[in-house]
Design a protein around this nucleic acid. Structure first.
Lengths: 204, 204
DNA sequence: TCCAAAATTACCCAAAAGGGTAAGCATTTC
DNA sequence: GAAATGCTTACCCTTTTGGGTAATTTTGGA
């Protein structure tokens, strides 16, 4: 796993790098500033980033986190001591994959990285707009026939009636009929309310 | 915050309890066995549980985690040393709110608990159909104005144009205009595709 | 104060979605 | 074999939604 370290204190950075390399992680680079971190991200994207929250006494780490969150799909961990509440609050909002609290030891560092990476891959799985029967409430799926579920999956992906008809090789009228039945069974009145219901059923 | 400690080594348990009490946490009890932990959970539910993965050389901690996950809505943290991969793998499956890696210090223990508790409350919020700006990709929200976001939230809840108009005290024409602009900015073509995009943006 | 952006409204038109009824087949079940 | 269920299609009509243009008002800064 390729890791980028963003840390302004050379001693700590070197320390982390050494530990990581000993444990079969690859350290792509050590960035001592926000600017260098960003250029490194854009030219040589790692699998994960370790970010010191307080870079050169500014909250640059959080800014980097926001940029990663918006533009790259890699997990990041904050390196932090027991910071003040405000900073911690802002850090939390970036939804980091984990935290490493200073002082840390070899075991906790490696564990944290592995766990964070695992969590991130789990989260990424949610990306795919694949409706999973298992995830739905039983009383929702019980009512719905197999065919209707085919339709429901396509609705879930945002398809129009026309697209659904083409996908399933059935007439537009049939699509409408099925969708009508789905609404009756789920007690919804539209695609939108159906999508809301699915979202809620799945996030239990 | 009321915390239950499940740890079979009295020294460690006492150590943790002491630290917690010094930091304004309330330790409801210390459970040295699975059985006692379960009875404590059912009679005196805490706000959070700290679970040693290896209880009396068995993986009882994981079992407790599974039971908490299935029956109680409280967050739990694993207390662990660098365990073997199999155990760690199983522990991850219970989706704990965090890990505390031994040896830990006061700061890391308290940080971990606070962060884990925060994460858990965030997760719970996903139940409710509330759209959170912070959770959206920056490049999505940057484009959207405050007012448009008001509309987006209502779309997110499955409201019709009419309902939105009544909620925001604006004309149906205005609603349509705003929604049109939202589609342009998000590069979507309908409520359904917008809901899909929101879903995907939020699960990053 | 003045400009620019955002918010509001209206209007027109077209496409999409939704509700209800009816009916022909294929299957499974009793 | 009859009944029930599910899948398919068609047709009707209504409502909702979406796209585009234009114009006015509000609002927030510069």
């Amino acid at each position: 796993m390729k890791i980028l370290i963003v840390e302004d204190e050379p001693l700590i950075a070197e320390d982390i790098a050494e530990i990581l390399q000993k444990n079969e992680f690859i350290v792509t680079n050590i960035a001592y500033s926000k600017e260098f971190a960003l250029s490194e991200l854009s030219t040589n994207l790692p699998d994960m980033a370790l970010l010191d929250i307080n870079l050169n006494n500014k909250m640059d780490g959080i800014e980097i986190a926001q940029i990663i969150q918006a533009n790259y799909q890699i997990p990041f961990i904050f390196i932090t001591s027991y910071s003040d509440k405000n900073t911690l609050e802002k850090a939390k909002l970036t939804e980091p994959s984990g935290y490493i609290v200073k002082p840390f030891n070899e075991a906790s560092l490696c564990s944290s990285i592995e766990i964070a990476y695992y969590n991130h891959t789990q989260k990424s799985k949610r990306h795919f707009p694949e409706l999973n029967l298992v995830k739905l409430n039983a009383n929702l799926t019980d009512k719905i026939s197999d065919r209707e579920f085919d339709l429901l999956k396509l609705i879930y992906e945002g398809k129009t009636n026309k697209q659904i008809a083409e996908t399933l090789f059935i007439s537009g009228n049939t699509v409408k009929k099925h969708i009508n039945n789905i609404y009756l069974k789920l007690n919804t009145i539209s695609r939108a309310t159906t999508l809301v219901k699915l979202r809620e059923s799945m996030s239990v």
